[in-house]
Amino acid sequence: MIPLSNFMMLSAALFVIGLYAVLVKRNVIQLLIGIEFMINAALINFVAAGKSDKNYMGGQMTALFTIVIAAASVAVALAIILNVYKYYKSIDPDKLNKLRD
């Protein structure tokens, strides 16, 4: 049996990689990938800890709901990215500096 701390160490590393992508990337889609890495790091923790909760399955249920919400938010984010691209002709987050027309 693999100890919980191994899973948590791995998820810490994955979270940090996602954070680095969010800080550095010049491209909204890659930024979104960074956010997904961070969500996946949290999911690893939830499922690994949920192994010791047989009655309520708290970890696995939270992971399921998180996957659903992350998928929905990605759909909306990509619709926004397409609109932003139509308007600015670029998806560099540094160039998106206006909310109005």
Partner: peptide
């Protein structure tokens, strides 16, 4: 794959 390893 990691989820499968932790029985999820």
């Amino acid at each position: 794959g990691l989820f499968v390893l932790s029985l999820g």
